[in-house]
Design a protein around this nucleic acid. Structure first.
Lengths: 129, 129
DNA sequence: AATCAAATCAGTAACAGTTACTATTTTTAT
DNA sequence: ATAAAAATAGTAACTGTTACTGATTTGATT
């Protein structure tokens, strides 16, 4: 049974108010204003719990720490190979790819993780100069 | 300049001979027959190098260690949520998704990482009983 | 074949990100 | 109000990976 906690609510609120996919460390530092002695362990525990019950999204890119997203509407993520920032990406017409993947597969496809990479607008412009 | 090394060749050969996407640890143990004092650091260094020059593929799933694939023909990966095994998945008709993702995006999409998850054939059957 | 600089190695220590442990505090059903 | 369950802060420990060091291997040049 999950009991209410003010720390968890603050973590959720923090994430919902941001669009930059913060790391656990960033959440920890951001929450410290309100909870000066919050523990990093508490942040990790609650991020994992929130992700498990589907209230936030966990994004693992394979290098560097995991990132978290408080916005649940269907969207994809883009990670810049230059600066490492993660941004949202609206991609239309990808709803069918689980079905495509399931063709000729004997198991059961439940979903997919996808992120795109390349140069973000800022890094792309910077390169031109 | 990259010089030949017997260890690196053995690592590559090991990966090409397998289809189960082993971890660095598994490679290390598998190579130990031939190189009893090979160092785990050497395995990591060469896996990173081989991935960088495009001779193998590195697969990060976000939980557990990275996995490596010695097979370069275009294919996707499936990770079983139950047993954690990673297998290959042939998915047709996904060539265009970088283009789709680039529509309405000011940066430059260079590629994407995707893996599918769900229940592998074995775990799916096991559940029924 | 001998020389030698650069690359690689084995071994080990250090690191980053994350999880686990413990004693205390908070939540919430009764 | 009470009390059991859940959550907490603080800290230690863990996992996967990278960095450092002095010795060895490679390969181009003689």
């Amino acid at each position: 049974m999950i009991k209410y906690s003010r720390q968890r609510e603050a973590i959720k609120t923090f994430l919902v108010g941001r669009y930059d996919h913060p790391t656990a460390e960033t959440v920890y530092l951001g929450i410290k204003d309100e909870f000066p002695n919050i523990s990093l362990g508490t942040v990790y525990r609650n991020l994992a719990l929130l992700a498990e019950i589907g209230e936030i999204q966990k994004i693992s890119t394979g290098n560097g720490p995991d990132r978290f997203d408080g916005h649940l509407h269907p969207h994809y993520h883009f990670m810049c190979s230059c600066c490492g920032n993660v941004s949202d990406l609206k991609v239309e017409g990808l709803e069918h790819i689980n079905v495509l993947a399931g063709q000729g597969f004997d198991g059961e496809i439940e979903g997919h993780f996808t992120y795109f990479f390349g140069k973000c607008p800022t890094c792309k412009n910077y390169e031109i100069q």
